[in-house]
Design a protein around this nucleic acid. Structure first.
Lengths: 180, 180
DNA sequence: TATTGTTATACTCTATAACTATA
DNA sequence: TATAGTTATAGAGTATAACAATA
């Protein structure tokens, strides 16, 4: 307890100090991350936020967010799939997918057709317009991906991608829950 | 357009098929990820969600979430820092940090003391109890991290960590905004 | 004028539970 | 009984704008 207080006091003093170490007036202290340096999750999260920001910015002309993009892509790659299958594939809640599809359908990207063999479920398709727009969307997404690659370095990017894919595949065995 | 419709029809037929390829009755189709396979962001996001889920589950005895953990750790490593410095370090909004600290302070983890050299700002500290609890919290967090390492493989995990750190450091030069 | 902490608002997203109509 | 789609709710998190006190 005593030691802790001394430690606090010392650090407190540190910010009281002139802090003229760098240049004119130091605006931000150099901060320690402590044990966060040993947590992959911390850096993964920061990276993910940055990626999403860049994605949203890049896709702004189409007003498409990452989740919407993944929905469009998977429907395009698996026409006629059900909402449950789509939700499970993407690791999102069925209930969340409903509003996601409502939005995309309202904007003319997707359609819900009656499933031919189960009257409870829908068969999902892209509209013709949705298909055409998706092509252009994919071009912008590719530009985004190039930026990711550049900011990470091609080698690291490729290593990371295969490591994460291995994790994802392994995850299918890990549990059967919607989230990975 | 014709080709697209044919493609749709073919896939549609696929789900109409008996689908008895695997075992008794196939519950979920094997779905294609399409171009998502080329997007790091998709897999990073899935990984990040899994990590957070595991973290929350592991830290449940202390009811501590990732953001709260990172706040505690950085205050512990930089006693007396200001809210703005903390927010910038973690890449979160100043406005978000307010409620985060309200919660932690209400639970006796942290304290806001008046800054000695700027009456606008606060100097943040852990309470004695907060320090003691954080030690035990770190133990659980380490167990979580071991699980991350195991599910990723030690080699991939280390590569990923250093690649993400390099990205984060580079990001400090990239822009001065709070988000990385 | 600029910055610090704060309040407020809008959206996105995760997590759950429950309901209906089908199976 | 179980499943598909849906509705509703709670909470976390991002993004943004504005305000009072202080620099």
């Amino acid at each position: 307890m005593t030691r802790l207080h001394l430690k606090e006091a010392a650090a407190h003093r540190e910010i009281e100090a002139p802090a003229s170490g760098n240049r004119a007036r130091r605006k931000t202290r150099a901060l320690e991350l402590g044990v966060l340096n040993g947590h992959v999750g911390y850096f993964v999260r920061r990276f993910q936020v940055w990626i999403f920001q860049d994605f949203v910015r890049t896709l702004a002309p189409f007003d498409i967010r990452p989740a919407q993009y993944s929905v469009l892509v998977v429907i395009d790659a698996n026409p006629g799939l059900s909402q449950t299958d789509l939700a499970n594939t993407l690791g999102i809640q069925r209930s969340r997918l409903v509003r996601l599809l409502d939005g995309l359908e309202g904007r003319g990207f997707t359609r819900r057709l009656p499933s031919p063999d189960d009257r409870r479920s829908h068969a999902l398709f892209l509209t013709d317009d949705g298909q055409q727009k998706l092509k252009r969307i994919k071009t912008l997404a590719a530009a985004h991906e190039a930026r990711v690659k550049a900011s990470l370095g091609a080698a690291s990017r490729n290593q990371m991608l295969s490591a994460l894919k291995a994790f994802a595949i392994q995850g299918k065995r890990r549990n059967h829950r919607p989230s990975i």
